[in-house]
Computed example of a mutant assay.
Amino acid sequence: MSATLAVFHAPRAIPKNQRSNVVPRRRIGSPHQAEDPRRRAKRGDPAKKRLGRPSDKSDDNGETSGRRQFLSGGLQLLILSSADDLLAAATAAYMSAPRPETVVYIGVTMDGYIARPDGSLDFLPQPEGEDDFGFGAFLNTVDAVLMGRRTFDQVAEFVVRDKVPWPYEGKRVIVVSRTMTQKDVPEPLSSKVTVTAQSPSEALKALGKTGFTRRVYVDGGMTIRSLLEEDQVDEMVLTSVPVTIGRGTSLWGFDTKDKRDYRWSVTSSEPIGRGMVKTTYKRVRKK
């Protein structure tokens, strides 16, 4: 029996201020001492069994020992209390779960664009052979990918039409969109992608609550800008491409949260061929 339930079997102590009302015990078997009437009234009908004895059993009328009912009810309360505590703890952990670390990995022209006005990326150098400019090694550092619809449509076109291998194999891929549903995902990719109508920051929070996602690769201009505005980007790997295109989609051009400066530290910078330079930035936040 647990220590919690054992308290029901502890003998009841009589407070000192009540001991004067207790009738002194008579010696058992003394023929000269009459039984006190108060004791007889308290004992009641000798034919009836006293509550609380282990030998109590239900009678024909279905009456049950009050002590046994008390024990049973106490056990139920303990079980319910434990279940409520566990649920409350799980809910608190779920709601307070931190968002995953976020990282952006993208190519940027010298004049600050990540795509042409129509979304084309034809200005980016194409990998040759097994040289992927380090993208494969980078993917090994993340658990999930978060992207917008336009970026997903481009990737899906490469995979479905051009038979390019799915680049995110083994990673959970979340597409944030208010104009796209799961039914819009091409059949070959339906099991590889999850579509959500949540905002990028809401989707990140949901990923953090699963407890299995620690680092997320964020892709797509609108998705990246949305998280940059909310100061929810922790790392940026920007590859400077030696080309100017004049017009296009920019990563920048928004007001920062609370209109304050965002400070970044440079953790590495290296040339990766064809005139490109890859620089890694870490967001500097006050603790």
Rank of each mutant, 00 (worst) to 15 (best):
V164N: 13
T102Y: 10
L146P: 01
R99P: 09
D36A: 03
A83L: 15
D132T: 09
R67D: 09
E101W: 11
V155G: 11
I174T: 06
D131L: 02
P117Q: 07
A137F: 07
D132Q: 03
P98S: 15
R68M: 04
L139C: 00
G136R: 06
V103P: 10
E130Y: 06
E169Q: 10
D45A: 04
L78S: 15
M95S: 14
V103R: 09
S96H: 12
G112H: 03
S72Q: 05
W166R: 07
A93L: 07
G136I: 06
P125Q: 04
L121G: 07
I106P: 05
V108N: 14
R39A: 03
D45C: 10
L146R: 02
D59Y: 03
G119N: 00
A115W: 00
Q126I: 13
A88R: 12
A92P: 07
E101V: 11
I79S: 15
D153Q: 10
S58K: 01
R40A: 09
V104A: 10
G66W: 04
P100W: 07
T151E: 10
V173E: 00
D56A: 00
G52T: 01
K49D: 01
E128C: 08
R53E: 10
K171V: 05
G62Y: 04
G44T: 12
E35Q: 04
K42H: 14
V103A: 12
L78N: 11
L75P: 03
L87Q: 07
T151L: 06
F133I: 12
T64M: 03
D111W: 13
F152R: 04
M110R: 12
R39F: 02
S82E: 15
A89P: 03
D143H: 03
I79P: 05
T64C: 10
S82R: 14
D132K: 02
K49R: 07
I114C: 09
